[in-house]
Nucleic acid binder design. Structure first.
Lengths: 207, 207
DNA sequence: TTGCCAGCCTAACGATCGTTCGGTAGTCTT
DNA sequence: AAGACTACCGAACGATCGTTAGGCTGGCAA
């Protein structure tokens, strides 16, 4: 039904050129890795010849750089939206859950672009990594600020550790969680429930 | 001082041949990725010629396969040791912490071999991944059994999610935690403290 | 002393990689 | 109608990849 001749702006139209390259490349980088994915494979998935990619991108590295930038934009936007959507009287737990849900939703909505930061980034060429670092630091700072507000009693070392463990828990989800239905919000609720109240209260056991 | 002509068994002797290849290859795979690391680079780090590697290993894939097997052995052994080292009257929280500490210690003691499972495995060639899956499943089953004993009140979906989030939190540590001193046990204590009691009790806030 | 073999070497193979060059077909501007 | 520009293409470049063939050498076994 999507193969009809009518062409109109829809959420997922038949992509052309640049956008299509970006999407299939992000998918391939995520599933196979950066070095393992050749430009010939990307070109085939985008239904063009390898040389054509160079009309849209300066190099393979530039392509990855843009993919990573798009991914960071997505989570940063999600963070801002989560903050904006909060009720005035939201308590600490609600605020945390809103941001966790935002991060997870961005992670699954933009799948490959955002997830690439988890698995592709560490092995990206040094130049590409360096180009992404400022954006990544900005996003990290947003979370540090949030967690500082939510847990004023925690010392900064423990808070840093909590932030990194939370990121590890959230980001690892891209490797095992299947986001059918609106289940992403359930995942966020479960993660925050455990993180905030602890396993002990969820099992009835005492520490 | 290590360059003296006396050769004796020490914890870190001058490595030769096979063992040396394994160690430098594991280090390089972890820091640069599998596809990004050429056999020529490995050979240079091991102070030999590329062709010599083939005297010890059938192929580059076989080299990675063995590295992953060594890494899984390390965490499996650590898990068993943690279980054996527990006091009779250890409560749920103590048992969890002992195993978390064991996993983290194995993660940092064998650095590259164990950590390769976190970052290298997902992008390894399909054949290599398939060879590691049984060992990985076994280790996963150990944790599932443990968590089932510790949290009998949790339904299996929530427990699975808890296990994966815990793994995400622990394994992401290899990318940011610097294990100076005996600080790994402190990290384990902090992770378990937060996981078990929750952030709420650590900040004085109420849910 | 001889033969063997582990352990390493040099040299090179074909394949694949990112990339470049010089086009061509279609569309839009003037 | 002519030029310019976008989007693509075929063909090839040099570099690097995993791998192999064949040879050298020093120490151990017979």
């Amino acid at each position: 039904m999507n193969t009809m001749t009518v062409v109109e702006k829809s959420p997922i139209p038949t992509e052309h050129g640049r956008d299509r390259i970006l999407r299939v490349a992000a998918d391939l980088f995520l599933s196979r890795g950066y070095a393992e994915t050749s430009l010939r494979t990307i070109a085939e998935a985008a239904e063009m010849r390898p040389a054509s990619i160079y009309h849209h991108f300066e190099s393979k590295d530039a392509l990855l750089t843009e993919i990573l930038a798009i991914g960071m934009d997505a989570v940063t936007t999600a963070f801002t939206a989560a903050k904006a959507g909060l009720a005035e009287n939201a308590d600490e737990r609600d605020r945390l859950q809103a941001h966790v849900a935002g991060h997870l939703r961005a992670l699954f909505a933009n799948q490959a672009f955002t997830a690439a930061h988890v698995t592709v980034f560490p092995f990206a060429p040094a130049d590409v990594r360096a180009a992404s670092v400022p954006q990544r630091d900005e996003y990290e700072a947003l979370w540090t600020t949030l967690l500082t507000q939510l847990t004023p009693g925690l010392d900064s070392d423990a808070r840093r550790l909590t932030r990194l463990a939370l990121f590890g828990a959230m980001n690892s989800a891209v490797q095992w969680f299947d986001p059918t239905e609106g289940a992403v919000d359930d995942l966020a609720a479960t993660i925050v429930d455990t993180l905030w109240n602890g396993l002990a209260t969820r099992t009835g056991a005492t520490s």
